[in-house]
Deep mutational scan, measured.
Amino acid sequence: VRLVQFQKNTDEPMGITLKMNELNHCIVARIMHGGMIHRQGTLHVGDEIREINGISVANQTVEQLQKMLREMRGSITFKIVP
């Protein structure tokens, strides 16, 4: 398990697509080339996201998580399992 932190201070999309796997874990499905996450190089396709800013992603839908990420500003921390 590791923590990945980055800054999001604009309306620029993060450039990641999330999916739920068969165990209902949140997985990074795709990283858009040239997007914020791609430029930082901190997340990778297949990484499992456990928490966003200390909030568990368990029992949340992809749509709920994407909305939460769109609305966040400032420092964002993901707890991930590579």
Rank of each mutant, 00 (worst) to 15 (best):
V1Y: 14
R2C: 07
L3C: 05
V4W: 03
Q5G: 13
Q7N: 14
T10G: 12
T10Q: 07
D11V: 08
E12T: 09
E12H: 05
M14P: 08
G15C: 02
I16D: 00
L18F: 15
K19N: 10
K19I: 07
M20G: 02
N21F: 03
E22G: 14
E22T: 12
L23A: 15
L23V: 14
H25Q: 14
H25L: 09
H25W: 03
C26P: 14
C26S: 01
I27P: 00
I27L: 10
I27R: 04
I27T: 12
V28H: 00
A29E: 13
A29R: 07
R30S: 13
R30G: 13
I31L: 09
M32C: 13
M32R: 13
M32I: 15
M32Y: 08
H33Q: 15
H33N: 12
H33C: 11
H33S: 13
H33W: 05
G35M: 06
M36T: 13
M36N: 08
I37Q: 03
H38A: 11
R39I: 04
R39N: 15
Q40K: 09
Q40M: 09
G41W: 01
G41K: 07
T42V: 12
L43A: 01
H44G: 08
V45E: 09
V45P: 09
G46H: 02
G46Y: 00
D47S: 01
D47I: 01
E48C: 12
I49K: 01
R50H: 05
R50F: 04
R50V: 13
E51A: 07
E51C: 03
I52R: 02
G54Q: 08
G54T: 05
I55F: 09
I55Y: 09
I55H: 10
I55G: 06
I55R: 13
I55P: 00
S56K: 14
S56N: 11
V57M: 08
T61Y: 03
T61Q: 10
V62R: 07
V62D: 11
V62L: 12
V62P: 11
E63P: 11
Q64D: 14
Q64C: 13
Q64E: 12
L65C: 09
L65G: 01
Q66G: 10
Q66H: 10
Q66V: 06
Q66L: 07
M68C: 11
M68T: 10
L69Y: 03
L69D: 01
L69F: 07
L69Q: 02
R70D: 15
R70F: 13
R70T: 12
R70K: 12
R70W: 08
E71W: 08
E71R: 12
E71D: 13
R73I: 10
R73L: 06
R73D: 13
S75I: 06
S75A: 15
I76C: 11
T77N: 07
T77C: 09
F78T: 01
K79E: 06
V81C: 10
P82R: 09
